[in-house]
Design a protein around this nucleic acid. Structure first.
Length: 592
DNA sequence: CAAGGAGCAG
């Protein structure tokens, strides 16, 4: 790289070069020049290099920034500020706070640039204790009236939930500006006091796009009062892109996808966030088909997907079981260098699992450079779901040996896997070790798994005891799974108890009586069966409509029981008919 | 000589 420069560059030439550096390789060139020319002793040049690295923080590893910083002799205040800023930008607030402590210890002068960075780091950490100590530091240096420093403090207290402290600073300040108003308003919004945020908004001497966006977001997403948010949105004079996105997100948060879509469709300008909000909204609110279509039209308009929209599209494929499209998105993401971070890869593993492609899931899982708790959990859940309960439990033990942290989802996955594989003893043991060995508090869902595990294995009495002795109130689903097991294990007495409990919980829907009448029928208790049927008729209960979704050659088909609107319905019923005929023929030949 | 605070997607 150095070869591209004949000889050494002068100080001025290096500074010029840095000034125009927008690529990492350019930074490397200058770095090499500094080393060969022993120019690190020039604090200004060294700090300019660091500053350029900081501007490129998204593409530079933290270790490289640290290296350059450590090479500068007696770093200046500016260099310290810059390396702290780098770590705040790179989401290493811990490191930033640590560096600040070292800076103080080294006796380096702090200035009005230092505090906003380090306060931001504290805010990210929600580290009120450190923040308060830095507040004391600020007062000693007499920088408390610098608007940047003060706003940093306000924002710190807001993020830490100390809105009263933030308010006190705000009220006592002589130099508050628009950002101070906005910060405090954001603070009220995030602690749920939208009313006070609204009063601040009305009292503001001037407003900018931030002010509007904070309150639109506050009314919409945070307070769920989307009509007030819309009022504000309509009144806003020069709506910027963020405001549109906030408003759309407000609708999406309440599941009002139609309203969200209407706004989206009339937007003059969209960015990848606008698309992501909507795609993610469709995924979350049960319309994965629409999410995928939107993702495709986003690509069609030349918008490069980011991690959020990619994850949205991938999980839409998981929900639909759309393996072909999922694989296509996987290769698209690889080809276009979309950051394959651990979240995206986990979504892909989940997609392959949900689509039943265990080998592809395993391949990706084994190759992943980093795995999160979610990655492991997804794999465990997937194995269990696909009927590989023993493998799921084995993976759980492997996870334990690696010392990976586990969360409640992990246990939900492994317990469900135990249920499906009838691994009663393992399941029971893992449940008992949850709190003791892994410090994960079992939730109702985990008790649900345990009850399911025991009752399916026929240990109905034991299951009933778990329900009755668990902390908190048992939910209807617990009694529900006991009831379902009573049917397979033909236990009328326990079933009747379960139905009574379900009735008390107001959860005795049609399904409960269907199961109960089936249980009676199996025992030949026909009087009871008729009683159940009559009860259902009286209450106007019906069975839920069955529906299913399938992907064929990349397009999605939905089937609803009794629905005949599918374009290929005649062919479908013909095939179905012939299947039934074949089944009948087979049965007939078996019987005779 | 240089750089900083507030808002939208998971």
């Amino acid at each position: 790289m150095v070869a591209s420069f004949p000889g050494l560059l002068s100080r001025g030439e290096l500074l010029d070069l840095l000034h125009n550096s927008t690529t990492v390789s350019r930074v490397h060139q200058v770095h090499a020049q500094l080393i060969t020319g022993a120019l690190f002793s020039d604090p200004f040049v060294a700090s300019r290099l660091l500053s350029t690295i900081c501007e490129l923080s998204a593409r530079v590893p933290a270790s490289y920034a640290d290296l350059v910083f450590s090479q500068s002799h007696q770093p200046s205040t500016f260099s310290w500020n810059t390396i702290i800023r780098f770590h705040v930008r790179a989401s290493n607030p811990n490191k930033a706070v640590l560096l600040f402590a070292r800076m103080r210890k080294a006796g380096v002068l702090t200035d009005h640039y230092t505090y906003p960075f380090v306060l931001k780091a504290c805010a990210l950490l929600a580290g009120l204790e450190e923040g308060a100590a830095i507040h004391g530091d600020v007062l000693k240096t007499g920088l408390g009236e610098d608007p940047f420093v003060m706003n940093g403090l306000i924002s710190l207290y807001c993020k830490g939930g100390e809105i009263a402290a933030a308010r006190k600073l705000f009220d006592g300040s002589r130099s508050r500006d628009l950002v101070s108003w906005n910060s405090l308003m954001a603070g009220y919004v995030s602690c749920g006091d939208t009313a006070e945020a609204g009063r601040l908004f009305d009292a503001m001497p001037e407003r900018d796009a931030f002010s509007w966006a904070i309150l639109i977001d506050g009314y919409g997403k945070k307070a769920g009062d989307v009509s007030r948010a819309r009022d504000l949105f309509d009144k806003m004079p020069n709506k910027d892109l963020v405001c549109w996105n906030s408003m759309i997100d407000g609708y999406v948060g309440l599941g009002m996808m139609r309203a969200a879509r209407e706004l989206f469709d009339v937007m003059a300008e969209r960015n990848v966030i606008s698309w992501s909000i909507l795609i993610d909204g469709y995924v979350k609110h049960g319309d994965p088909k629409e999410a995928l279509e939107l993702f495709q039209s986003m690509l069609g308009q030349g918008v490069r997907p980011d991690v959020i929209s990619a994850v949205g599209a991938i999980s839409a494929c998981s929900q639909l079981g759309a393996l072909d499209q999922g694989r296509w998105i996987h290769s698209y993401v690889k080809k276009h260098n979309i950051l394959l971070d651990v979240v995206v890869e986990t979504a892909l593993v989940d997609m392959y699992m949900k689509c039943g492609s265990l080998d592809l899931a395993r391949l990706l899982f084994d190759e992943m450079p980093r795995r999160s708790v979610v990655t492991w959990s997804v794999m465990i859940v997937g194995l269990g779901m696909n009927g590989f309960g023993c493998e799921a439990v084995e993976l759980f033990y492997q996870m334990e040996r690696r010392g990976a942290t586990m969360d409640d989802l992990t246990f939900l996955g492994v317990l469900t896997a135990c249920t499906h594989a009838r691994l009663v003893c393992e399941g029971r043991e893992i449940f008992d070790r949850m709190r003791r060995d892994f410090r994960v508090e079992p939730k109702v869902e985990h008790y649900g798994c345990l009850v399911d595990l025991l009752s399916r294995a026929g240990r109905l009495q034991e299951a009933k005891e778990v329900i009755e002795t668990m902390p908190g109130t048992p939910t209807s689903s617990l009694w529900g799974s006991l009831l379902a097991a009573c049917r397979t294990h033909r236990c009328v007495e326990l079933a009747e108890i379960a139905v009574e409990k379900l009735k008390k919980l107001g959860a005795d829907d049609g399904g409960v009586y269907v199961i109960m009448s089936n249980i009676y029928a199996a025992e030949g208790m026909w009087n009871q069966v008729w009683k159940m049927r009559k009860l259902m008729r009286e209450r106007g209960m019906k069975k839920e409509t069955g529906r299913s979704v399938i992907e064929v050659d990349g397009s999605i088909h939905e089937f609803v029981y009794g629905d005949s609107s599918h374009p290929y319905k005649e062919e479908i019923y013909e095939v179905l008919g012939s299947c039934q005929m074949q089944c009948l023929e087979k049965m007939v030949s078996l019987i005779f």
